[in-house]
Every structure is written in C-alpha cells, then in structure tokens.
Design a protein around this nucleic acid. Structure first.
Lengths: 275, 275
DNA sequence: ATTAGTTACGCATATCGTAACGATG
DNA sequence: CATCGTTACGATATGCGTAACTAAT
C-alpha cells in the first residue's frame, strides 16, 4: 500500500533529478530516500529506474509513474477540498433572489431563527435554476423543481416618488407608458425590477447608483423621480418634498415565491414559512 | 497526510456500521480503529462523525467523505495498473500485418535482435491505421502517419502450383483471368492475398485450410492447385509432382512496407532495417 | 451486566539517521 | 579523491494492543 509521503519524495526526486539533491531538499538522509524509492518500485511491481552504480534516473515507465503519482496526490487534495466544501455548504445557506426586498425579508427571518448561520446571498436580474449549491431561490413566478418546495412569499407593489412640482405629481396613478421618457434614479442590485423598467420604458434614462448615501442625497436635492415600493416607502417619504404614486400596470404588483431545497438544515425554516 | 490503511479502515467502518464490528473484521483492536478515525477527521479538518457516548455514526459530511475516499483508493489501484500496462507495452512489440510472409520475415529479424522480447502479432485482410498500441504495421502500399517511419521492405511475387497433368501445367505464365473458375487450395490467415484472389477470381472456389499438415497432404494427394510465392517455394516443390507457374497480373508482384513507430524500443530495429 | 467507544500506558516494531562500503568520473 | 547510491546497524519514535474508564441499553 502506498505511503503518500514516499510518493511525495518520488515527485521531489523527479524534480531534483538526483537522490542526493532530493534528500537535501526534503531534509532527510539519502539512505531513507533510497529505501523509499525501492518501496515505491515494489508497490508498482515494475522497475521505474535505471540504476547504474552511482546514478539513479527514471526510466520510461518511471516517467509515466511520476505523472500518475502527481495526479494521484492532487486528487488527495481534491477530495479534502470537496469534503470541506460540502461541510461548509451544510453549515451555510446560499440564496439567489430576483429582487432585494424579499431577500432582506427572508434574511431577517433566518437571522432570527438561526443567528449563527452563515448566509451567502446574491441578487440576479435573471435566475438559472441549475445550481446544486443554491438552497433557496426567490423568484417572481411559480417554478417546479425536484427536491425543492415552492412557497408563496410576500407581494411587492411598485410606486414612483416625484417632487411636488413635477409634471407627474398631480396623477393619482401612472402607467409605464405615461412615465416612459422621464429620467429616473435607480438603485443598483434591484434584480428583475431593473430589467422590467428598462423593458417598459425604452425612452427613459436611468441613473443607476450603488451608493445609498448618494441616492438619498439625490432624492432630496434633485427633481429626478425614483422608484419605491410598499416595502420601501418611508414614513418621511411625503415630507421629503416628494409624493408617492402607484404604477398601475401588469407586473408592477409582484407575488414572490420561495423555492426551498428540501434538506435537513432547512426543515425548520420550511415549517415556519409554510403557513 | 493520508495513511491509506487508515482510509481503508474508514471504508470498512462504513461497511460494518460500527467501530467494534469493523475492528473485528479488520483484525485490529478497537482503540486503534478509534484513533484512526480521529486521525482521518483531523486530515479532513472537519467533523465526519456523530459521536454519542457509545455510538459512532457518520454524519452527512462523513458519508460524502466515504464516497470520495472510495474513489481515491480506486484511483490508487488505477495508477498502478496504468503503470504496469505501460511497462508491459514497452517490453512487447505489437505488429499488424496484411500478409504472412513479411511478418514471418520480420519476426525472425526481431527474434535475432532481441530474443527475449514478447511480440503480439496479427494478420489482417484490411488494416485500420488507428491503434495507438500498434508498434509496426506491415502494409502493401505507402502510408504516411505522424510519429511513424515508413520503410520499404521485401517484395513478394505470386505463383500457382499445379500437378503436371493439370490443364494449366503447360503455361509459362498465367493471369487471374485465365485461372478464374478453377478451384484452389488456400491457407487461412493469408491477409490481403485472400481478398485479392477472391476479387479477381469470382468464379473460383477456395478451399481454405488452417491446418498446415492437412494442406500439405492435400497438395500431395489431390489435383487441386494452390498458391505459392517466391518466399514459399520449397526446393522440393517440383519433385512433389507439381509445377510452379508465375501469375503475371497487376498486384501479384507486391512491395511491402513497414510502418514503424518512432520510439526508443524500436530505435535499433529501425537503424538495422533502414539501409 | 453487557456492549460500545474513548483515553492511558507500556511495549514491540517500524522507520530513520549514522556509519561503512562500492563504484564512477 | 570527491561524489553518488546502496547496504548494515543501532537508536528512537511511531503505533499497536492491553487495561482501565464512562456511558448507554
């Protein structure tokens, strides 16, 4: 049976080209290394070296053996990594969401349920349901997937927020068609909302900001309208000199769904949410 | 670093389901096995077991680890086999020939050059030049192949051998057209010759014999003609009551070629033949 | 009380390094 | 004669089994 340390010595011998150099590099005596090489030959059951009295070199078979052993040793690292990754995946939850609001909501729920668990989450404009490592997908449409449970989640409704003196300010409600052409402030990482707006408002420009401070300043100090929702309207929204107007269109009142992997670690979460 | 014996113990533990049974099966003490499992856990750096005071079971990560370790141990056997196979391929020569005569000739040459080498040879009616493990192809036409060297080899000429009283016996030479329709004795394993004769003599019957004694008896005691060549005509051919007549046709005077893999083990053979 | 697993400890054996040897350039 | 690899041998350190302990059935 192989001794992995001897196999590493074998690799080092190949690297150094001679027994004495390899022994030096490995900090072991040359008799030890000599014996190791003999042991490896015995393990393989074939001759791996050309032996003259004071020169040791690999023969053709030995050269192949080096390659095989290298990939074998790499494999040993691979399986350690695989096991570690799997262990980590059991201890953490990976979430892919099509929108920020339901993600925040869910993160808060999970946080109160298991405060110590590590969570990896991302917001995506479109979601491919093909990642084995994802534990929870948050989508805006029903999806059927084996080993996953579909649960209806929150509803989010789209509004715009405009200054009182804005041309749109007098409307009780608006449609995409009516607001198409106006410039809008937009947070980055809004998932499918960004695609939706760009699709239905092809004539508008969107000033996408990823800094929360910048966007709140721009809302206060510019006339550019922005989007909010029933979950993001703040109490002071109207006192900010702005008025909130619902966008009444298809797709602006969104039902979100959770697609949760049926696994041991998510059992509690599913039972909590499934009512 | 992994100890492969401990990994096997790990597999056995999974198979037996408990430490004590596995220790029994492995003929080691349970403290030893207990320590081994702890060592493996340390190697992976993650917890692999559910430990209650008197029950040891694999956790989810441990179950994955078993699979990974199994394939790792299989791999160790694979690399041994690969190295052994390669070693064997270096010690043997594989030859595919389209005809028996040049093969015999070559076998004799190789035998005198390296008496101990093991040779695997086959005779084929048609040859596909796609087998990585073939060291030498013997063909009846020029072929260009990367990593192989083409060398002209012997020429073989086709004759027929007929009894003195045979209808063809008076001819100084014959053509396929003239002998078409006559029955012929044919040795098996004649490679492309068999295809050639069948193609140009569609009206003849061929009595194919694979026993050398049978065919020599049939030649002596029957009137059925047979084929010979400049390499197979024996001194006593005419005294056997038969006369040898050349077949003068295209393709009956054959130039053979050797297509030899440019490798270390064939270097001497190539230099010997390349003059 | 019996079985299962872990920890403690002493001994046997395997493994390593030093020393000695042979051969080569 | 210096360098390189292998063999011989003695020291030490690794690893095994026995014994002792704890907990559960």
């Amino acid at each position: 049976m192989f001794n992995l340390y001897e196999l590493e010595q074998f690799i080092e011998f190949n690297k150094q080209g001679s027994l004495s150099k390899a022994a030096e590099a490995l900090n072991i005596s040359s008799p030890t290394l000599s014996r190791s090489m003999q042991n490896i030959e015995n393990e393989f059951g074939v001759s791996l070296f050309n032996r003259t009295k004071n020169k040791l070199t690999l023969n053709e078979t030995g050269k192949l053996a080096v390659k095989e052993v290298e990939s074998f040793l790499n494999y040993s690292n691979t399986i350690i990594q695989n096991v570690k990754n799997y262990d980590e995946s059991l201890k953490s939850i990976t979430i892919k969401s099509c929108a920020p609001v339901p993600l925040w909501q869910l993160l808060s729920t999970i946080g109160s349920l298991s405060p110590s668990i590590s969570i990896r989450s991302s917001i995506n404009q479109t979601i491919a349901f093909n990642d084995e490592l994802v534990d929870i997908y948050i989508t805006n449409h029903k999806v059927d997937m084996p080993d996953y449970k579909l649960l209806p989640y929150i509803q989010e409704k789209l509004y715009i927020s405009v200054p009182y003196n804005h041309a749109l300010a007098h409307n009780k409600s608006v449609t995409f068609k009516e607001i198409n052409g106006y410039d809008f402030l937009l947070r980055s990482e809004t998932g499918f909302w960004e695609s939706l707006c760009k699709e239905h408002m092809p004539d508008s420009k969107f000033f996408i900001q990823d800094d929360e401070y910048t966007i709140s300043q721009l809302i206060k100090e510019s006339n550019i309208p922005n989007f909010v929702s029933n979950y993001t309207i703040k109490d002071n929204e109207n006192s900010n000199g702005r008025i909130v107007i619902p966008v009444c269109d298809q797709n602006t009142n969104v039902q979100f769904y959770l697609l949760i992997k049926q696994s041991e670690k998510l059992k509690h979460l599913i039972t909590l949410l499934d009512k």
